[in-house]
Design a protein around this nucleic acid. Structure first.
Lengths: 115, 115
DNA sequence: CGTGTACTCAAGCATCTACTTTATCAAGCG
DNA sequence: CGCTTGATAAAGTAGATGCTTGAGTACACG
């Protein structure tokens, strides 16, 4: 039952998504590839800072960088997003199941009282 | 379309989930309520440290603490998990859509060549 | 009442993070 | 060739984070 082999990976993915700028970059990459310069354009910070953000996204597997002429086009790696979602869904599923059982139990109790 | 009013909330939720101990606590709370002492039991760290972790989870809305006698029972707030999932799913959905369009486009190109 | 238990508050410390500036590199252009 | 462009590398800094210890609070039990 998923003894969380990839705990470090999850640490890194959630930490990466904990930053507004990086979430923004992910959202923009979901619309298609973009170069570092293009991704940096909207922000007040330096290009280097954005490159570092992309480095964080790359190291945790959310993004990959290629090479085309003098640019490094970035693309989303959606299956890494998947690992984050599936971790969360696991907890929500367990909780929902538990609530269902509780509800059923309460219904049985009430049945007993009415008789 | 969601100009991210709750950016700070998302920052906090993802930052909270970026820690192994806190993810573990969330997972355990998905099996049911627990007191601070119970939650702290498995870890080498002090009770205070665990209480601080719960504080982080509480501040971002993932967990709520009640009062029962001298204990503070903690429970999961699953709708906050929902906000994190739905942010991620939005990006994945956009990416999947884009891939579908790309595929369709490539199919049309190939059709043209074959004729 | 005093003692124990469950917990929070507060201060201190080591480490990590999000930037910055300066320097460097590699590809294309005159 | 030298110069610009798009990018990474490295080093420094202010502020956040994860933990500790020590002290304080609220409830129960005898």
């Amino acid at each position: 039952m998923a003894i969380t082999i990839d705990d470090e990976r999850l640490d890194a993915v959630f930490a990466a998504l904990a930053d507004r700028t990086r979430r923004d970059i992910v959202a923009r990459l979901s619309e298609g590839e973009a170069t570092v310069k293009e991704l940096a354009a909207p922000y007040a910070m330096t290009l280097q800072a954005v490159s570092q953000h992309i480095g964080v996204l790359e190291r945790c597997g959310l993004v990959s960088r290629g090479r085309h002429r003098q640019t490094r086009p970035c693309r989303l790696e959606p299956q890494t997003l998947e690992t984050a979602v599936s971790w969360i869904e696991e907890s929500r599923r367990a909780w929902a199941e538990r609530m269902d059982r509780l509800e059923a139990h309460l219904a049985r109790l009430q049945d007993g009282q009415q008789r």
